[in-house]
């Protein structure tokens, strides 16, 4: 994970900017709801607000953690550069290992402090979205009308306008929510089909995040105790490295090599239309 990148990312850090941007983005949504019906009521203002709030909470957590994680990276690099791996008996190495362990404990504490707020935000958004998805997609649609909804404006859409599907994001948690918010606000004025995909994407992502948060919280107490013990011996466990790597992956994303399909090469205007076409 690129911790250097984290330090450069200061976008959207002011709550005022969020508020103004939010109001501007919401404006077309309400105008749209007056002019075009029926619309898919997946993202009422309350849900949108919850997504925005979850993004803010995630950003706060990242901000609190990025300095600690950057320090952890530095100490880890120093540990490796000093050839301390396997040479823990050396007093200098012991010292570095203790510092590393202390920073690790600090990271766990920050996470322990911030995770409850994150958990609350994620649970609220998941619950609201769940109700909306159940009603709008699960109960009001048949599989056929759901398919028609998804394909409806397929031809008009540019690939760049499409929401990226799950597992493709590879970005920080807060940026992901920020992107979700932008997607919902933008596509609210245009495409129902995208909304269904975005809603599903957010909902599944939230479920996964909630699961990870619960697991992380369980781990924190145990890891804290273990590290307090380790401090007496000054050792770096592989477990510590794993937890740090896991936190980085969840919060700050991981780079993934994406393979996209080749672009289409035909002219939609000249498509053959069979009398059997459904």
């Amino acid at each position: 994970m690129k911790t250097g990148m984290l330090c450069n990312d200061r976008r959207n850090s002011m709550p005022g900017v969020w508020l103004i941007t939010g109001c501007m983005l919401l404006a077309p949504l309400s105008a749209h709801s007056l002019t075009r019906a029926p619309t898919l009521k997946l993202f009422p203002t309350t849900v949108l607000e919850e997504i925005r709030h979850t993004g803010s909470v995630a950003r706060e957590m990242e901000t609190g953690l990025q300095a600690v994680i950057a320090r952890l990276d530095e100490q880890q690099a120093l540990f490796v550069a000093s050839k301390c791996e396997g040479g823990e008996g050396d007093p200098g190495c012991k010292q570095i290992a203790r510092q590393l362990g202390a920073t690790y404990l600090e990271m766990l504490n920050v996470m322990g402090d911030r995770l409850p707020a994150m958990e609350t935000a994620v649970t609220a958004t998941t619950s609201s979205l769940e109700k909306r998805i159940r009603r709008e997609l699960g109960q009001k649609k048949t599989p056929w009308t759901l398919q028609e909804l998804l394909i409806a404006e397929d031809t008009a859409k540019d690939e760049s306008e499409r929401p990226a599907l799950r597992g493709r994001s590879g970005m920080r948690l807060s940026d992901r929510f920020s992107q979700y918010y932008q997607l919902v606000a933008r596509s609210g004025s245009r495409v129902n089909s995208s909304l269904a995909v975005v809603a599903s994407d957010i909902y599944l992502d939230m479920q996964e995040t909630a699961h990870l948060i619960a697991r992380t919280r369980e781990e924190i107490n145990r890891a804290t105790l273990m590290e307090q013990l380790n401090q007496s011996f000054g050792t770096i466990t592989p477990e510590m490295q794993e937890v740090v790597a896991g936190v980085k992956a969840i919060l700050f994303g991981e780079e993934q090599a994406l393979t996209l399909s080749a672009p289409p090469d035909s002219d939609p205007a000249r498509e053959y239309a069979s009398p059997l076409q459904l």
């Binding site: 599907l165 599903s200 909902y203």
Partner: peptide, 16 residues
């Protein structure tokens, strides 16, 4: 369409 339907079905069925 297959990918999107699979995703939306996964979410919808979980919500249901």
């Amino acid at each position: 369409l297959f990918q999107e339907t699979e995703l939306v079905l996964e979410a919808t069925c979980s919500a249901c």
